[in-house]
C-alpha cells in the first residue's frame, strides 16, 4: 500500500476525468445558484437529478435518441420544479420541507417507474439506451497535453462549462440578472422598483430544474449508459456545498465542483491501486466537509474584518423599522 508511485496516480487522464466527474455537479450548482439568488435554498436538486437521470434513460429508449432522452429529462424536471414552486410560492409551504419531500418522492417515483415502465429493479441496463458519444475536437486532439485534457469529452461536459459562463453573464451582466438577484438579497429594493419577487422565484426554481435535467441526463446517458437507483450518489448535496463554497458566484462555485470532481476521479483511480474501497470512496465526502469548514472559516474572517460597516447597514434598518406610525 505504501509504494504507490505518485506519478502513476496524477496523470492527465485523471484531470480529464475530473472534468467529467464535475459535470453533473456543475449543472446542479449553476441551477442552485439561480434559485439561491432569488432567496430559495433548493435542497431538491438531488431529487431533480434522479428524475432527470431516469427520464433521460426512458426517453432515450422510447425515441432511440439521446437528444430525445434529454428532452424527456427536461420536461420531467421542469414539471418537478414547477410542483416545488407551486407548493412553496402559492401554497406557502416551507421550501426545505418541500425540497426534502421532493427528494424522497423522486426516489419512490423512479423506483416505481423503473418497475412499471422498464420492468427492472434497482438497475436498468440495456442496448436500447442510446447515449451520447464523445467528441474528438479536430486539431486540438493531436496537441499533446491540451488534446488529452480538452478533447474527447461528452458534449454535456463542454455545455457544463459553457453554462457557467452563460449563468455568469445572465446574473451579472443583464438587467434581468440584477433584478433577479435583488429579490434574494433585498426584497424591499426589488419591490420598490416594480420587480415581482414571486415571478423571479419561479424563474429561479425552473432554471434549477432545467439544469438538473442536464446533469441527470449526463449521469445516465454519458457518464454511464444505464439507470441505477443510487446513481446520483449525493451530487445534489455536493452542489449545495459548492454553492456555499463559492458564495453563490458561478466561477468560484465551479471551482468547488472541480475539487469535488477531482476527488471523485481520484477515488476511482486509487481503487485501482488496491486501496480499500471503503476508505477511498469516502474521499469526496470527506473533502466536502473540509472544503465547507475552510470556506466557513474564511467567510468568518471576512465578516469579522468588515463587521463595523455591515452593522451600520443592519442597524439603520433595525432602528428605523422600530418606529411604527399610522
Amino acid at each position: 500500500m505504501g509504494n504507490i508511485d505518485i506519478r502513476s496516480v496524477l496523470t492527465l487522464a485523471l484531470i480529464a476525468s475530473s472534468f467529467r466527474m464535475a459535470t453533473p455537479i456543475i449543472f446542479a450548482t449553476m441551477g442552485g445558484i439561480f434559485s439561491s439568488h432569488t432567496g430559495i435554498f433548493n435542497v431538491a436538486m438531488e431529487g431533480f437529478l434522479l428524475i432527470g437521470a431516469f427520464f433521460a434513460v426512458y426517453g432515450s429508449v422510447q425515441t432511440g435518441s439521446p437528444l430525445g432522452g434529454m428532452l424527456f429529462a427536461i420536461v420531467s424536471c421542469l414539471l418537478a420544479s414547477l410542483i416545488f414552486a407551486i407548493l412553496h410560492l402559492e401554497l406557502k409551504a416551507n421550501p426545505i420541507i418541500v425540497g426534502l419531500g421532493m427528494n424522497i418522492f423522486a426516489i419512490g417515483m423512479t423506483n416505481y417507474l423503473l418497475t412499471a415502465l422498464l420492468d427492472s429493479t434497482g438497475v436498468y441496463k440495456s442496448n436500447l439506451i442510446i447515449g451520447f458519444t464523445q467528441i474528438q475536437i479536430p486539431v486540438i486532439e493531436t496537441v499533446p497535453v491540451l488534446g488529452d485534457l480538452v478533447s474527447g469529452h461528452f458534449p454535456l461536459v463542454y455545455i457544463a462549462f459553457l453554462t457557467v459562463y452563460v449563468v455568469y453573464l445572465i446574473l451579472y451582466k443583464t438587467p434581468f440578472g440584477f433584478h433577479l438577484r435583488s429579490v434574494g438579497e433585498k426584497i424591499d429594493a426589488a419591490e420598490s422598483i416594480g420587480v415581482n419577487p414571486k415571478k423571479m422565484k419561479y424563474y429561479g426554481l425552473l432554471v434549477s430544474g432545467l439544469l438538473c435535467a442536464f446533469g441527470g441526463t449526463f449521469l445516465s446517458l454519458s457518464y454511464l449508459n444505464l439507470f441505477g437507483e443510487g446513481m446520483v450518489a449525493g451530487r445534489g448535496w455536493l452542489a449545495l456545498a459548492a454553492i456555499n463554497f463559492g458564495g453563490m458566484r458561478p466561477v468560484p462555485s465551479m471551482i468547488g465542483c472541480l475539487i469535488f470532481g477531482f476527488m471523485d476521479a481520484l477515488a476511482v483511480r486509487l481503487q485501482q491501486f488496491g486501496l480499500p474501497s471503503q476508505v477511498v470512496l469516502m474521499l469526496p465526502y470527506a473533502t466536502t466537509i473540509i472544503v465547507l469548514l475552510v470556506s466557513a472559516i474564511i467567510a468568518r474572517k471576512k465578516r469579522m474584518a468588515g463587521i463595523g460597516k455591515q452593522d451600520d447597514v443592519d442597524v439603520s434598518v433595525a432602528t428605523s423599522s422600530k418606529k411604527v406610525e399610522v
Binding site: 443583464t174 438577484r181 435583488s182 438579497e185 429594493a189 420598490s192 447597514v313 428605523s320 423599522s321
Partner: peptide, 25 residues
C-alpha cells in the same frame, strides 16, 4: 427611513436599478 438598496450592488447599480441603460441584452 430604511433604505431599499441592494447591499452588494454598486451605488450606481442601485440608483439605476429597474431603468438600466442597455447595450443589446
Amino acid at each position: 427611513q430604511h433604505f431599499k438598496l441592494v447591499p452588494s450592488y454598486t451605488l450606481a447599480q442601485n440608483i439605476a436599478l429597474g431603468v438600466e441603460p442597455k447595450k443589446g441584452i
